[in-house]
Design a protein around this nucleic acid. Structure first.
Lengths: 247, 247
DNA sequence: CGTTGAGTTGACCATCGTCAACAGGAGTGG
DNA sequence: CCACTCCTGTTGACGATGGTCAACTCAACG
């Protein structure tokens, strides 16, 4: 049930009672990529009242696995690594969150994985509780959330194929092409792929060791399929990489 | 907008205009496990009108990857393997669907993986289009679907850890314990785990070859951690297996 | 400069994959 | 009823991919 007051202010056109002066959702450069694309102007304004911009320095943690999941996040800038640890310290990175990605899809009581910033990160933080209440009134937002979840699931299944059935060289080629495509949606498609994460991160994502990642990258570079540049890779022979990734 | 006719019939208590004589949703033994648990009596009845019971013989296909996704399915009996193929024939099984599981969470135009029956399977088939229309009117069903999707995502992330960072022995132990738990929700918890799928299927799920699966199972049996029985495994030393799976 | 941490490279090795032979059960046909 | 095939699963010998251990380079930072 919507109170008369809220209904009245929500229906007055053009004026958002929650409007902030700067860094507003309306100007958000990842809005069209994020879950917020499902919201109209007034809804965006309502959501903005719940949100709080946060920044995270490199290597700092957004949240830890099994912690109470108080917040959900929209990544607005930078890269976040999402990972699970085994008791003996082995680590599997289950994904990298890029600008536009949403953390907290599960809306569960506890986080299913840990998350920390790879490079300086800015994110839109919201209380999970407040977001859940907002979500209850917006079935179209739930639909968007569900689309995000099934997209993630699809990526996870592709990653299972990669981890279970591909060689080191195929893993690296798939990783580079996949990351290129994801950056493409954020920045526009380019043959230069930013790699802000360390070799260790790449290895823990692909189920390889740091040495195998390094060796495979240098081999691909020696064979002129890629060019190693500071904090990234330039894809020279995209067809060759696609052949490896598809194989 | 609900038409007067539909509203009237939907609100008449106790009488379901679509009721079938046998095999009704009301008596469905996996209802509480499935997405249908989110529906009340009348809604269940409406859904039943869209559903059609199907059976699939072992090794027959429910659908193939990249086919037009005309239908969605509720598995009511048997086990379905869900898999992706690489062009050279390598296969990765991305999951086994058990009774109560829903196929078609993504509601996408095309299936993201192939599915076929491991043993005789019965499933509730619905046209995706009709189901989508129904779903549009039932936000609580969408919520349930989203819970299923995020649960699947969580399982997929666990599987990434398994595929990327665990030894053959740990993979087998995790697999057996995980399957035991899932069967537990269907049949009640037991130390005997049914394995209707072949060694090849297990290998393709765990990122191993058939030989490694066989060797690891016989080794665990020789060491009295498990007992191999026809079409299954009896877990003898559960603590030992849990130690391997957690490690 | 010295220290630290990330990355690269090399030598060696272990786990798991490959190839092959064999066992046992189900189905088929003489 | 028995021989035959076929299929799944098991076991062994061997080998390759990728992991382990170690040394080294280089840039950042004090």
């Amino acid at each position: 049930m919507i109170s008369p007051h809220v209904a009245a202010s929500a229906s007055s056109p053009g004026a958002c009672p929650h409007a902030h002066t700067r860094e507003g959702c309306v100007d958000c450069k990842v809005r069209s990529l994020s879950i917020c694309a499902a919201l109209d102007g007034m809804e965006l304004c309502e959501l903005e009242a719940l949100a709080q911009h946060s920044t995270f320095a490199p290597k700092t943690t957004l949240f830890l696995q099994d912690e109470a999941a108080d917040s959900v996040y929209n990544v607005t800038d930078g890269v976040v690594r999402l990972y699970k640890l085994l008791p003996d310290g082995r680590r599997q990175i289950v994904g990298f969150a890029l600008p536009g990605d949403f953390l907290g899809l599960a809306m569960a009581d506890r986080y299913g994985f840990s998350a920390d910033a790879v490079e300086p990160v800015t994110a839109c933080r919201m209380s999970r509780e407040a977001f859940a209440t907002f979500l209850d009134r917006k079935p179209h937002l739930l639909r968007r959330l569900h689309e995000f979840a099934t997209h993630e699931l699809s990526l996870a299944q592709d990653q299972m194929v990669l981890l279970g059935r591909r060689s080191a060289e195929e893993k690296i080629a798939s990783f580079l092409l996949g990351l290129r495509e994801r950056w493409g949606r954020v920045n526009g498609l380019s043959v230069t792929v930013a790699l802000p994460m360390s070799r260790q991160d790449i290895g823990d994502f692909l189920g390889l060791t740091i040495e195998t990642v390094s060796r495979t990258l240098t081999r691909l570079a020696r064979e002129k399929a890629i060019l190693l540049v500071p904090d990234g890779v330039r894809l020279i022979d995209v067809a060759r990489l696609q052949g490896l990734a598809a194989a």
